[in-house]
Simulated scan of single mutants.
Amino acid sequence: MPEFFESVAFETATEIEQLARLAYELRENRQAVLQFHEVADEAALLQKIQSGEVAEHPAYEHYLAARILEDTRETARAALAERVKEANRT
Rank of each mutant, 00 (worst) to 15 (best):
H62P: 00
R21W: 12
E82A: 11
L26K: 04
A65N: 13
L80K: 01
L26F: 08
D71A: 14
L34F: 08
A40H: 11
Q35D: 15
E3R: 10
T14P: 00
Q47M: 05
E42D: 12
L45E: 10
A43W: 02
L26C: 01
E38Q: 15
E56S: 13
E86T: 10
K48F: 04
V8F: 02
F5M: 07
E15V: 01
A23E: 01
F36T: 15
K48R: 11
E3S: 11
F5A: 06
E56Q: 12
R89I: 02
L69S: 02
K48A: 13
E70A: 14
L22F: 02
E15Q: 07
P58E: 09
A81W: 00
L80N: 02
A76G: 01
S51Y: 00
A66V: 03
A66C: 05
V39K: 06
A55R: 11
A81Y: 06
A59P: 08
I68W: 09
A79D: 10
L45H: 05
L22H: 06
L69V: 00
V54E: 07
A20F: 05
A9E: 13
G52P: 07
Q50D: 14
V39M: 09
A65Q: 12
A32D: 11
L26R: 09
L64S: 05
A23V: 03
T12K: 13
A79Y: 01
E28D: 12
N88Y: 02
E82D: 14
Q35R: 15
E25I: 11
T75S: 15
V39E: 09
E74P: 01
V39C: 05
Y24W: 01
T12S: 15
T90Q: 14
Q50I: 04
E38H: 13
A20V: 05
E42A: 15
E74M: 11
A43N: 14
E17L: 12
V84Q: 07
N29C: 08
E86N: 10
P2Q: 12
V8T: 08
R73H: 00
Y63W: 08
L22I: 03
I49C: 08
R77G: 02
E3Q: 11
F4W: 00
E25Q: 15
A9N: 09
P58T: 04
Y24Q: 13
K48E: 08
R27D: 14
L26V: 04
E74L: 13
A87K: 04
R73M: 02
V39N: 09
A76R: 03
K48I: 01
R77K: 13
Y63T: 01
A13K: 07
R77N: 12
A13L: 10
H62C: 09
V33M: 06
A76I: 00
A79S: 07
F4G: 03
R89Q: 14
Q35S: 15
